[in-house]
Design a protein around this nucleic acid. Structure first.
Length: 480
RNA sequence: CGGGGUGUAGCGCAGUUGGUAGCGCACCGUGUUUGGGACGCGGGGGUCGGCGGUUCGAAUCCGUUCACCCCGACCA
C-alpha cells in the first residue's frame, strides 16, 4: 500500500535518495556520526565497480599494493597546501595501548604522503621509473555534513599513486587515468560524464593540476565522480623523491594521484533511479535477471520449478548473473515491486501458462508498466536476454545523456547566467574571470565552476562576467 | 559552528486536563492464498534517547545533556 511507496523525486529528492539507499539494501548508518555500513547488496555493486576499474588499471600497467591506514602527523605537514587543505578534517590518534603517543598519528585521509615517503626510499634511478601503484582501501575525513555515499566520514575508494621521470609523462598518466574513469563511467555504469580541468579554487590540495569527470544527477546538481591529479614536483620536493638520470644528475620525480570512490554508487542511484527505486545498469548490477516463479499449489510448482531451474542453468552458463526468487509466502506482485526497488534490469516471470506455451514473460526495469513487458519463447531465450541487457544498458546511457544535455544552457552574460542557475540548470560560459570573481559568483548564486571541459569550442569570445576576451569555456553548476 | 526539526517496539507513528503505553507494517506459529505490493486466527517484542528535578504518581511538566535528520560556511 502507500507505506511501500517511496517519496517521489519531484516531491523531495533528498528524502527519495535517503530512503531508497536504505530500503534497497545498499547501505545503512553506522553507529559513529557520519559513518556508513555498506550492506551486501551495495557491496556487491561496489565489487562490480572495482572489477571494472581494476582490470582497466592492470591493462594500463598498474599494480596493486597496500599502504598503512596510520600516518605520522608530521608527514601531512611536509606539503604546505596539502596540510592546509586536509587539517580541518583529520581524525587523529593520540593514545595507543593506553599510552600517550610521542607523535600523534593521523588516520589516512588520502595517501600521497605515504606514497611520497615510500617512493623516496624505493626510487634511486631512472631505471626504477615509472612507479605505477594503486591501492583499494578506505579513508577517513571528518566531515561536518554527511550523506550516505556522497559524503561520509569514512569512504571506500581506490587511490593510484605514480612517479615519473618527466612532467610530460606525469601529465600523460594523469590524463590517461581520467580517460579510464570516463570510459568506465560511460561504458560500464551508463553515467555520462564530462571530462575537464578544475579551476584554481577547486583544485586538490597539493596538486598542480586536477582533472575531473562531472556527472549530472536527476535533480540537475553536479557530482564530481572521479579525479586525477598532476602533482608536479610538489610531493617529490616535500619527500625527496629523487632519481639519477642517464647523465648521472639528480632529478626530482613528477608524481600523480587519482581516485574513484563509493560516492559513485550514489551517483549511479541519482543518475538512473526513478520513483519505483533503483535502476541499475546491467553491466554492474549484482543481479541482471531475477526469475519469479509463479504457482498456486504444489502441482503447479512441480511443473514450473524444473523449467525455472533449466533456464537458470542456461543463463548461468552464459555468464548472466541471475537470481531465482523462491521465497515462499510472498505474492508475485510483492516480488515484482521488491526487485524493482532494487533495480534489477530484467525480471522474468515463469508460471503454468508459460510452461504449457513454452514462453516466459520478460519485463525491463528501464520501461515501467506494460510497455516494458513482453512474452517470448523459451527457445533462444539466453541470447534474447543478453540482447535485452545490452539494449537496456544503451538506453540508460542514451536517456541520461539526453537529460544532461537538455539541462546545460549557454550563458552569454551575468544576467542570463543568474537566471540559468536559479532555474537549476548548468551554465556553459566563456570565462576570463579571476579567482575572486569565481568566489563572488559562488556567494551570489550558489554555483561553482565544475570544470573547464577538455572538449573546447574553437576560437575566443566575451567572458560571461567581465566581457573581456575569453579563451576558454567553463561549466558552472550547483554541486554536491 | 549558526538556524530549523525529530527522539515512544526493527520501521512508521498515536498517546487528551499527569494515573503506570498503544496502532499499522515487519517478525514468530498456523491455515487459506499466489500472473502487480493477499487474508484469517493465535503470539513475542518497549529502562518512552540519557541524566537530574517537581509530584503520592511523569512518555506527558521543568532543567540539562546526547544523538540523528534538514538548511547554510568547507569537501571525493
Amino acid at each position: 500500500m502507500s507505506e511501500y511507496k517511496l517519496t517521489p523525486q519531484s516531491e523531495d529528492f533528498n528524502e527519495w535518495f535517503n530512503t531508497l539507499v536504505q530500503r534497497a539494501d545498499l547501505a545503512d548508518y553506522g553507529p559513529v556520526r557520519g559513518t556508513m555500513i555498506i550492506k551486501p547488496y551495495g557491496w556487491a555493486l561496489w565489487e562490480n565497480i572495482q572489477q571494472g576499474l581494476d582490470k582497466r588499471f592492470k591493462a594500463t600497467g598498474h599494480v596493486n599494493a597496500g599502504f598503512p591506514m596510520f600516518i605520522p602527523k608530521s608527514f601531512l605537514e611536509k606539503e604546505a597546501k596539502h596540510v592546509e587543505g586536509f587539517s580541518p578534517e583529520l581524525a587523529v590518534v593520540t593514545i595507543g595501548g593506553g599510552e600517550e603517543l610521542a607523535e600523534p598519528i593521523v588516520v589516512r585521509p588520502t595517501s600521497e604522503t605515504l606514497a611520497g615517503h615510500a617512493y623516496a626510499n624505493w626510487i634511486k634511478s631512472y631505471r626504477d621509473l615509472p612507479v605505477l601503484i594503486n591501492q583499494w582501501n578506505s579513508v577517513v575525513r571528518w566531515e561536518l555534513r554527511t550523506k550516505l555515499f556522497l559524503r561520509t566520514a569514512e569512504f571506500w575508494w581506490q587511490e593510484g599513486h605514480t612517479a615519473h621521470a618527466t612532467y610530460e609523462e606525469a601529465e600523460t598518466e594523469t590524463r590517461q587515468m581520467l580517460d579510464v574513469y570516463h570510459d568506465f563511467a560511460v561504458n560500464e555504469a551508463a553515467v555520462p560524464v564530462i571530462r575537464g580541468r578544475k579551476s584554481n579554487i577547486e583544485r586538490f590540495a597539493g596538486a598542480d593540476q586536477t582533472y575531473t569527470i562531472e556527472a549530472m544527477m536527476k535533480d540537475r546538481k553536479a557530482l564530481q565522480a572521479g579525479t586525477s591529479h598532476n602533482l608536479g614536483q610538489n610531493f617529490a620536493r616535500a619527500f625527496d623523491i629523487q632519481y639519477l638520470d642517464r647523465n648521472n644528475e639528480l632529478q626530482h620525480c613528477w608524481t600523480t594521484s587519482w581516485g574513484f570512490s563509493t560516492r559513485f554508487i550514489g551517483g549511479m542511484v541519482m543518475t538512473h533511479g526513478d520513483d519505483k527505486g533503483l535502476v541499475l545498469p546491467p553491466r554492474l548490477a549484482p543481479f541482471q535477471v531475477v526469475i519469479v516463479p509463479i504457482y498456486k499449489n504444489d502441482d503447479e510448482k512441480s511443473q514450473v520449478m524444473p523449467v525455472v531451474q533449466r533456464i537458470q542453468a542456461e543463463l548461468v552458463a552464459a555468464d548472466v548473473r541471475v537470481k531465482v526468487d523462491n521465497r515462499e509466502d510472498l505474492t508475485p506482485g510483492f516480488k515484482f515491486n521488491d526487485w524493482e526497488l532494487r533495480g534489477v534490469p530484467v525480471r522474468m516471470e515463469i508460471g503454468p501458462k508459460d510452461v504449457s506455451k513454452g514462453t516466459v514473460a520478460l519485463a525491463r526495469r528501464d520501461m515501467p508498466g506494460k510497455e516494458g513487458k513482453s512474452f517470448v519463447s523459451q527457445a533462444g531465450l539466453t541470447s534474447q536476454v543478453q540482447t535485452l541487457l545490452k539494449t537496456i544498458q544503451a538506453n540508460l546511457l542514451e536517456t541520461a545523456t539526453q537529460f544532461r544535455d537538455a539541462h546545460i544552457q549557454d550563458a552569454r552574460n551575468y544576467d542570463e547566467f543568474k537566471q540559468i542557475i536559479a532555474a537549476g540548470e548548468w551554465g556553459d560560459c566563456w570565462w576570463a574571470g579571476s579567482d575572486a570573481d569565481e568566489k563572488r559568483i559562488k556567494e551570489e548564486t550558489g554555483a561553482t565552476t565544475r570544470c573547464f571541459p577538455l572538449a573546447q569550442p574553437e576560437g575566443t569570445s566575451q567572458c560571461m562576467l567581465t566581457a573581456q576576451t575569453a579563451n576558454e569555456v567553463v561549466l558552472f553548476a550547483k554541486a554536491y
